Computed example of a mutant assay.
Amino acid sequence: MAIYRKIDCRISNDKKFRELSVEGKLAWYTILSRRDLAPIGAFKASFESLAIEQRGNEYLNKGFEKAFGEAFLEALYELSSKGLIKYDPEAFLIYVPNFLRFNFPENPNVVKSWNSVLDSLPECDLTNYALAKSTEIILNSQKDSFFKALPKEFVEAFEKGYGKGFPEDFGKGLAKQEQEQEQEHKRKENIKEKNPPTTSGLENQSEDELPFSEPENQSISKTETVEKKAKRKTKAKQPCPFNDGDVIPEDFLKIAEQYLIANPQLLFQKMISYCKSNGKEYVDYKAAFRTFCIQDQERNRGKPSSGTNSNNSAPMPYEPPGGFTEDYYRKGCKFDDKGNILL
Rank of each mutant, 00 (worst) to 15 (best):
L118Q: 05
I248F: 07
Y129Q: 10
A256T: 04
S221Y: 10
V110K: 11
K303Q: 12
E23R: 03
G173F: 02
T225E: 15
S141P: 05
F242D: 00
S141D: 14
G173I: 04
P39V: 05
K228P: 08
K338A: 09
A130W: 15
K276F: 08
V111Y: 11
T291S: 06
L266Y: 12
I137L: 15
K334D: 08
E216I: 04
E326N: 05
L60N: 10
N311K: 10
D244F: 14
N103M: 14
K86N: 07
S113Y: 01
Q265D: 12
R18G: 08
E19P: 00
K303T: 09
R301H: 14
V283S: 09
K188N: 01
D169G: 02
K172S: 02
K176G: 04
N61C: 06
N107D: 14
L266T: 10
N204Q: 07
L150K: 06
L342G: 09
K82G: 02
P105D: 09
R101M: 15
F292K: 01
F43S: 11
A149I: 06
R34D: 15
S141F: 14
I40H: 07
L20T: 03
F268E: 03
P241F: 15
F158Q: 07
G83F: 05
S113V: 00
G83P: 00
A149P: 04
G165W: 00
L73Y: 11
L174G: 01
E203G: 00
I7F: 11
G24D: 01
M1I: 06
A75R: 03
K133V: 10
I220T: 13
N190A: 02
R330W: 12
W114A: 08
K82M: 06
K331I: 07
A130T: 12
Y129K: 05
R18D: 00
C9K: 13
K331F: 14
I52W: 08
I31W: 11
A38I: 01
D36K: 15
K112W: 04
T30S: 08
E298W: 01
K276G: 02
E182I: 01
N57K: 08
D119W: 10
P39C: 07
Y318R: 02
E184C: 01
E319G: 03
R18I: 07
S273C: 05
F147E: 14
T30G: 05
R187K: 09
P197A: 03
G41L: 15
E216L: 05
L121F: 13
K254R: 09
R55F: 06
K235V: 09
F166Q: 03
F154Q: 05
N312I: 02
V22F: 00
Y162C: 04
K303M: 10
N57H: 13
E168S: 13
K164V: 08
K334N: 09
R232I: 14
F68T: 03
P97F: 10
K82T: 01
P197S: 04
I11C: 03
V111Q: 09
A314N: 03
P167L: 07
T127A: 10
R330A: 15
K164S: 12
D208E: 09
V155L: 13
R10D: 12
K338Y: 11
R330H: 15
K6Y: 15
S306N: 03
L84P: 01
E106H: 05
T127R: 15
R232T: 10
S49L: 11
